[in-house]
Design a protein around this nucleic acid. Sequence first.
DNA 1: AAACTATATCATAATATAATTATATTATTA
DNA 2: TAATAATATAATTATATTATGATATAGTTT
Lengths: 100, 100
Amino acid sequence: MKMDSWSVKICKALGHPVRYTIVQYLTDGPRCVCELNDDVGFSQSNLSQHLRILKEAGLVRSEKDGLKIFYQLTCPEISALLGSIERVTACCLKELQTND
Amino acid sequence: MKMDSWSVKICKALGHPVRYTIVQYLTDGPRCVCELNDDVGFSQSNLSQHLRILKEAGLVRSEKDGLKIFYQLTCPEISALLGSIERVTACCLKELQTND
DNA sequence: AAACTATATCATAATATAATTATATTATTA
DNA sequence: TAATAATATAATTATATTATGATATAGTTT
């Protein structure tokens, strides 16, 4: 698959409120699904499916520890990406306020 | 609207191959729709709708010049964002190759 | 002003994504 | 080994997104 379209896949993976929130949580370090479940506040099954999508995009990795499964970000560049997104958000919001 | 969910909106806007490509083109400077139409190679109507979505997200701005309409990125941070996405893409792809 | 060009909008059909419910898997503990 | 806990998967329904084709608008040229 072309690098370009993988980038699109990553944007799509982040383009959902639950998944975006999960990634934000994971910038603080690994979390087990049960913790995420509490934090994100969604049905277990639904959360699991969102985690799969993040995993398929390569954004997160999981690791077993007994009964629990811990998820973490696959690389530090992902935290940097969130920062970059927020800077763009700030300027886009400004743009919309001034012009319309 | 919360800043967080606007970030999600921006990710969603970028999470489509045509829109991602448009934004990439615009990093080189303003383009008129007709040029984009040639570059992106999609139906005029469809392109126009994608441009609207990018505009609603605040990522692009349009300007009339006679019959033509030129689109441009609203801020330089957007080019930086593309760079950041590509760095993440590179490491996500690496992750998937090594682990599975 | 009629014809034309560039772009946008609208309605709709096709397709993809999301949430829900039920069930399965895997590890742990009694 | 039966019961339980944590997580994943599957099937289904609900909802959102996308592409298409037709039509509208706005500026330009003849």
